[in-house]
Amino acid sequence: MLDMITVESVSKSYGRGQTAVDDVSFTAATGRVTGFLGPNGAGKSTTMRIIVGLTPPTSGTATVDGRRFTDLPNPGLEVGVLLDASAQHAGRSGHEILTVAQRTMGLPRTRVKEMLDLVSLTSHEADRRVRDYSLGMRQRLGIATALLGDPQVLILDEPANGLDPAGIRWMRDLLRGFADSGGTVLLSSHLLHEIEVIADDLVVIGNGRIVAQGTKASLLAAAGTVVRARDAAALAQAMERAGLAITAHPDGSVHTDAAPDQVGEVALAAHLVLTELRAADGAGLEEMFLELTADTQREGAAA
């Protein structure tokens, strides 16, 4: 496992003290899918644009395999990038867009058809102009462009946008296979569930700052315990008396950072009947995501 993408203290500010990205550092390793998670406008896209050299950072460095992206001799052969599937000349056909990329990278012409087959775009669809493509088709075309040069690294910004459930499943399997064969994947999403099912490592960003990062397992472990009792109010009281920080939810469940056995002891001492006691997993991560981004995300603490 090697750090393939390294982002070090990257900041990007625009005039008038507007900071899009603030001292962001993280790595993405080979053989792993790194999920870049954050609400809309948190700075995910800006960070990714900085990695691929489209946006110059105000300070800090970003490297891929130890080199700045702009120093790569033929970047398409090393890093596959999809930042915005709609950013294509609307008057070109899908086939033509791939051909332009294929020629730029200096690849054999047969690669275009291979990629179209890989992303399941029929030759009829490929001959249509991108103007008439659905967002899902544009995403597939973008994935095809990213994979065209057989790169070892993939950088994808919200690749699941516009894909139907089957398409998302397909994308997930594709990225899993890519990482398992030694590739590095960095993909962003504002949807927790999307990231949760695919990522090995997580980087959570809110308002331009990294708010959490680590393996998915470690972030899940840190997510605490979900517990339910027949008498929810009594449980909450008992836990508070025991000095546990809790969040009581309207559905009767109580969430705490403490470990399940601690919670069990409290319930036993208070003679409470528990109906549920478990480590907070997926739900816990969601809790964490909302919590971590609560004070920074646009919707406020509405969740």
Partner: peptide
Amino acid sequence: RSGLTTFTLLP
């Protein structure tokens, strides 16, 4: 906006 792809392939 095709520059997004162009300048990624040719930084």
